[in-house]
Design a protein around this nucleic acid. Structure first.
Length: 786
RNA sequence: GCCGAGGUGGCGGAAUUGGCAGACGCGUAUGCCUUAGAAGCAUAUAUCUUUUUGAUGUGAGGGUUCAACUCCCUCCCUCGGCACCA
């Protein structure tokens, strides 16, 4: 009988679907929620890299089912977004149509890979029955005062013709299309994620997430504690924020950001020059600003002095765009001796530098130390001085964050409408008549003016005010791509509920997510946004958990043969369809797990795929050949139990590559032995999560029944103990021989036997042994006198 | 510049956390099979050494230890993230 993957894979996929084996059934068992980051249904379909994470979670889901857990393993579609809309602009085909087509394609890719999703819970963020609740959450956020509309200079992508959140600008470029972003001032919906800065920070440490992602979130939130201290300009208080109140005596000038409002009220001698500078600074792109890090610019406000509150000294005042308007107070006390930026600036404009910590250097000394040049505070340590000086100048303790509020509106068509109505009389009124459906339109082209294409649909835009019945207009901005994905994991628990976003009991049973797998690129986007919404929903009493995702693992990329990321534009994409056609889904699955450590990026290697296929063929032949044997030798039973232990432990640690290596090792060991059903059964069950089609078929062929009725096998702790073990014999720390000994042999015994070895004798002859080191069951080391 | 991860054969990578470095796979070589090729099977495969023996070897240098890929110090390189946040 030959391994005919085409036939058997279809057979078992149909069976699983018919029997609905992946649906949640028995609620009395402990639950296990294993979740994938749901895909964007792109027209290109999935490539082999996308599948790596999905295969891994599938293995875990199948393992957990066999271990008796009530496993929730759902999938859905994050289907709003620009590609479908851009495609519509080009072809005139509505995004809904292309999206549906793409979903059908990818769903099929999932099925032929043998992924065991619970298809009864499939969700789609573009389904009005889904985005109804996305809109509902927005209204709740609005009602709590955490959503507001504001005229803001925001990041603008000239190519996508939409505003972007801070998180979506990478290196001064649009995260999606790579175009350099500009600034644009338009009315924006903004969510107050900053109100949750502390909560988002607090929760991080308790999570079993990759250190890297936790660090990135912490840095992004960027909490810093310091003092707000008032300087006086013309008797007006100008507060500055500093983390280094201890260096106040070293402050030799004050810097205002170009946006600082006080500039308008001052009688500046060189007003024209200053205004010109401010105007120029406003129009700078992020990239321009970044490129000026090493060459700071600024203009002194002539005729203006500030007074340092610690010593009443008069100091010059500058406006410079190295000070940011949106952080702290938008004004900074400059201490060139102890801050690199101030140091650069002071050197360039020849400003005074006063050293107050440590001693004079030719660079800014930014560490803590002992104060001098600081009057009565001399001799204090930095940390003491911060407190004392801060209090002395009547400063206020203050915390600041780098995190900025989430710019939430997009000027595009293919997104959730923001459920808001602007009434001439009542102002901003939420539209509780949900869902606010996205209307069908003919022209998708973004206007570029800061309005979405929806603004042109008069009969959609013009409505009655739900409050007063008067003339009103709909909000025409849509939500960002991240809205639907900020809560989707909750909807899987109760996908058809039309009364609430999720039933509370169901939420209690299934949340939090036990294992979440996806790419690292969402560290400060989706993963931050969804924690924010989750915490909001928790605070509002809709859910019972503080954090959505307990354990997160990042899947490493699969790179193309050329070592590059796979992409359609580079033409280096490898499609799973071809691999499955040629070698079968089980080969693809096992290969992707064997490639290397799960979280690491690895280059695709066609030869490696063939190697796995060869292994599976051998495995097949081996199982079939031993079909009629009943019992195996004691030693082989012990070996398969050892395999069981190793594989069980490694899957739990997501070390799939070594699990597969152990399977191979085991097959190498037993391939030419006569093996009975006792060993075969355990081997098949262990391999089942990795190669489910093949193992189901072999189980049936060998007459064992239906593999789905089986539990994950337990290994026998007694059985796996060995009676003989190889002991390493060292002389002066170098391996000179290896001896087979009884397990737990005593030091005396090992010493005696090893001294009888001819090889060892040679090394010990005529030498004096000064020390003997013995590690039970491992090694003995004879140390010679020199 | 700062933060994080990492550096092991020709390649992807193992190594029970201080105890046999190179598991497993790919590739390569030789042989078998074949009219031939492919596939398959067998053997070998870190380097040096004529074989045994032995020596060297986990980015570089130093240290701790009977023993270091593993711990400590100094440095180099690669990848990822952040980047004027006062």
């Amino acid at each position: 009988m030959k391994y005919n993957f085409k036939e058997i894979e279809k057979k078992w996929q149909d069976y699983w679907e018919k029997e609905k084996i992946n649906e949640v059934k028995d609620l009395s068992c402990p639950k296990y929620y294993v979740l994938d980051m749901f895909p964007y249904p792109s027209g290109a379909g999935l490539h082999v890299g996308h599948l790596k994470g999905y295969v891994a979670t599938d293995i875990v889901a199948r393992l957990k089912r066999m271990q008796g857990f009530n496993v929730l393993h759902p999938i859905g579609w994050d289907a709003f977004g620009l590609p479908a809309e851009n495609y519509a602009i080009k072809t005139g085909i509505h995004p809904e149509i292309t999206t549906k087509k793409n979903i059908d394609n990818i769903r099929n890719q999932f099925k032929v890979t043998g992924l065991s999703y619970d298809w009864s819970r499939e969700i789609n963020t573009t389904d009005p029955n889904y985005y109804k609740w996305t809109q509902w959450i927005f209204i709740k956020i609005f009602e709590k005062g955490l959503a507001y509309k504001k005229l803001l200079p925001i990041n603008w992508c000239p190519s996508c013709k939409t505003g972007l959140a801070n998180e979506e600008v990478v290196d001064g470029k649009c995260e999606r299309c790579g175009t350099e972003t500009t600034k644009k001032e338009i009315e924006q919906w903004v969510l107050k994620i900053t109100d949750y800065a502390d909560k988002l920070l607090e929760g991080i440490d308790s999570l079993d997430w990759p250190e890297k992602i936790k660090e990135m979130q912490k840095n992004w939130i960027g909490k810093s504690q310091g003092w707000e201290i008032n300087f006086k300009i013309n008797n007006i208080d100008v507060p500055v924020f500093t983390t280094r109140a201890d260096t106040l005596f070293g402050c030799t000038y004050l810097v205002l950001s170009p946006e600082h409002s006080i500039i308008n009220y001052l009688d500046i001698e060189n007003k024209e020059e200053v205004n010109e500078y401010i105007e120029k600074a406003k129009n700078k792109s992020d990239r321009e600003r970044i490129s000026e890090v090493k060459n700071k610019t600024g203009v002194e406000l002539k005729g203006i002095k500030a007074i340092n509150p610690v010593n009443q000294k008069q100091i010059p005042v500058f406006v410079a765009d190295y000070v940011l308007g949106h952080y702290g107070t938008g004004a900074v006390m400059a201490v060139p001796a102890h801050d690199e930026r101030d140091f650069d600036f002071a050197k360039k404009y020849n400003l005074e530098i006063i050293w107050v910590i440590d001693s004079e250097k030719d660079f800014a000394f930014t560490e803590d130390g002992t104060l001098f040049n600081s009057s009565e505070f001399n001799g204090l340590s930095s940390s003491e001085a911060r407190e004392k000086i801060g209090k002395f100048v009547k400063g206020e303790k203050k915390v600041n964050y780098k995190l900025r509020d989430w710019v939430f509106s997009r000027q595009r068509y293919w997104g959730e409408p923001i459920p808001i109505i602007h009434c001439e009389k009542c102002g901003i009124v939420p539209d509780y008549n949900l869902p606010v459906k996205l209307p069908y339109i003919e022209k998708y082209e973004p206007t570029g003016t800061g309005e979405s294409p929806l603004a042109a649909i008069n009969d959609w835009v013009n409505v009655e005010c739900p409050k007063c019945g008067g003339k009103a207009k709909r909000e025409t901005n849509t939500m960002p791509q991240w809205a639907g994905s900020s809560w989707y994991y909750l909807r899987y628990l109760d996908p058809n509920n039309d009364k609430e976003l999720v039933n509370k009991e169901k939420e209690k049973v299934f949340m939090p997510v036990d294992l979440y797998v996806g790419g690292a690129e969402h560290a400060v986007l989706h993963l931050l946004y969804s924690r924010f919404w989750h915490k909001f929903l928790f605070d509002s009493g809709y859910i019972s958990t503080k954090e959505p995702f307990l354990k997160l693992r990042n899947v490493g990329l699969i790179l193309a043969n050329d070592g590059q990321k796979m992409s359609k534009s580079k033409g280096n994409v490898i499609s799973p369809d071809e691999i499955i056609e040629q070698f079968g889904a089980d080969t693809l699955r096992v290969y992707e797990m064997f490639m290397g450590p799960f979280e690491q990026a690895i280059v695709w290697n066609e030869q490696g795929v063939k190697g796995i296929n060869k292994f599976l063929n051998r495995f097949w032949d081996f199982v079939v050949k031993n079909k009629d044997n009943k019992e195996s030798s004691k030693e082989l039973i012990a070996e398969v139990n050892r395999l069981n232990k190793k594989v069980s432990e490694d899957i739990e640690k997501m070390k799939f590559n070594t699990s597969v290596a152990f399977f191979m090792e085991f097959l190498n060991l037993v391939e030419n032995e006569k093996v009975g059903s006792d060993v075969l059964k355990m081997f098949l069950l262990l391999m089942f999560p990795f190669a489910p089609h093949m193992c189901s078929e072999l189980w049936e062929i060998n007459g064992y029944g239906n593999i789905l009725n089986e539990e994950w096998p337990k290994y026998d702790k007694e059985l796996i103990k060995k009676d003989k073990i190889e002991i390493v014999i060292q002389v002066d720390g170098k391996v000179r021989d290896r001896l087979e000994m009884d397990v737990d042999s005593s030091e005396e015994k090992v010493k005696e036997v090893s001294q009888e070895s001819e090889r060892i004798k040679k090394w010990l002859q005529g030498k004096e042994v000064t020390r003997v080191l013995f590690i039970p069951n491992k090694l003995i080391n004879f140390i010679l006198k020199k």
